[in-house]
Amino acid sequence: MKRRTALKNLSLGIGYTMTYAGMAAFVTSCKADNTIKEVATSWKPSFLDEAQSSMLTDILDAFLPTTKSSPGFKDLNLIQVLDNVVNKLYKKEDQEIFSAGLAEVATKFGASKDLKTFMETHMTKKPKAEEARLDKLLDLKKEEVAEADLKEYHFQKAMNSIRGIGISSYFSNETIATEHLNYDPIPGKYIGCMPVSEVGNSWAL
């Protein structure tokens, strides 16, 4: 998957391509939202260990922090979704890549002064040539990656998963979808062209 073009084409076309509704289902929460507090104390990660779970929660909360208008990643305890998806849906080889990548994330995270520095160093856009190199690297199968690039490969792969699942789980979470996006399960009439001011936020489905 290309870092930037990964999902761009999915929203186009009809019938044969994925629909918004279908796309939103990419990854979702496990109903963590209603019982956050209760769950937060009793839930134990199954794929991640406690330290990884807390590190990834911090990182994803930096992506999706609490703001005036909406809760953040941490508030919704969405790390459960990530843990569950990697645990249940990934095949073994992909779990191994993810784990190797996670070790890289931990190293880089530990070497950074703080979360802010980590995000600035690793999660911002790189110069064009460097982005292109990374895109190419990520297109490779693990066996094709040169020894020297392997750490980088694992790191980028894992971060892609973390970002992808993290963001998807957030926006297809029930609270976010129904209270913060525009949720309309049975639209009735379809209106193809209207002022955005009459709608407001993006549709949830």
């Binding site: 796309m23 922090p65 926006f171």
Partner: peptide, 14 residues
């Protein structure tokens, strides 16, 4: 586009 663009674009924060 909807929020999915956030997966494709590099970016983070408020």
């Amino acid at each position: 586009e909807n929020w999915q663009r956030g997966v494709a674009e590099m970016g983070y924060g408020q």
